[in-house]
Design a binder for these strands. Structure first.
Lengths: 121, 121
DNA sequence: TGTCAACATAGACACATGTCGAAGTCTGAC
DNA sequence: GTCAGACTTCGACATGTGTCTATGTTGACA
C-alpha cells in the first residue's frame, strides 16, 4: 500500500495512444491522453522534461532543476509533482536528494499519438 | 491584409520541434511548442482533431463536428478557433459551410518532438 | 539530541480557460 | 430586398492553474 513506488495514476496511459488520425477518439481515451498533454503544455514543465531527458545519466536532482529557472523552489517542486503524477517522471529519493527520471514509455506513447499514416499519393 | 488566408500566427512552429531529449530547451522554444500543446491538451479539442483527421477526405465541416458533441455550437466554434490559431487546423469556407482540415506538418512536428534517441545498450 | 539542508505541502492570490446564451456576419434562395 | 441558415463573436460566469510565502518532513552529521 505504499504510495511512493511507481506512478500513482494513469497506469494504462502508455498503451493509450493509437495514432490521432486512425479513428475518432472517444471521450474516455481523450481524457486519458489529455492527462499527459496537460502536464506537458506548460513552458516550465516542458523545459523540465527536456532538461531531465538530456541530463547526464538521464536523471537530475531537484537542485539541478531549480537552478535552471528563476522560480521559487516550491514552484519547481509543484511542477515536478504534476509531471510525476501524470506518469511522465519517475521519482527516486537517495539520501537527502531526490532524482527525477523520464519514463521513455510515456514519451514514446505520445510519439505514437502524433504519428501519421503514410501519405496517400 | 486579408485575415482569412492561412494561419494567423506561429508560422515557424512546424520547424520548432527538435526532439525533447536532444538538449535542454530554452524558454523561447518552449513557449512556441506549448502553443501547440496547450491547444491539444483539452479533451474536446483532441477529439475534434481526431475526428477531422479520420474523416472522409481529411476534412469536416462544423456541422459534422457539432453533432459529435453534447455541447453548444458556439463552444465547438470556439475550440475550432483555438486549434486554427495554433496552426493545427486550416479553415476553408465554401458557400455557407466551413470546412476544417488538419495540418500534417504540425502533427509531424509534434511527432518529432516526442521521438526518442535510439536506446543505448 | 540538535541543527542544517533538501525537498514537499498548505493556503492564498491573480490570472487563464471552458462554457453558455445572445447578438452579429455572411451567403444563398426566394 | 428580404429571409433563413451556418457559423462567429461578445460578454458573463464558474472553475482551473501558476505562483508565491510560510510551514512541515526527512535524512545526514556533529
Amino acid at each position: 500500500m505504499s504510495k511512493s513506488d511507481g506512478l500513482p495514476i494513469l497506469h494504462e496511459s502508455y498503451a493509450c495512444c493509437t495514432p490521432l488520425a486512425r479513428e475518432p477518439m472517444d471521450a474516455r481515451q481523450a481524457a486519458t491522453v489529455t492527462g499527459l498533454l496537460k502536464a506537458l503544455a506548460e513552458p516550465v514543465r516542458l523545459r523540465l522534461m527536456s532538461i531531465v531527458l538530456s541530463h547526464e545519466g538521464g536523471e537530475a536532482c531537484v537542485c539541478d532543476l531549480t537552478d535552471a529557472f528563476d522560480l521559487s523552489q516550491p514552484t519547481i517542486s509543484h511542477h515536478l509533482k504534476v509531471l510525476h503524477e501524470a506518469g511522465l517522471l519517475d521519482r527516486d529519493k537517495r539520501g537527502v536528494w531526490v532524482y527525477y527520471r523520464a519514463r521513455p514509455d510515456a514519451i514514446s506513447a505520445l510519439g505514437a499519438l502524433f504519428s501519421l499514416p503514410a501519405p496517400r499519393v
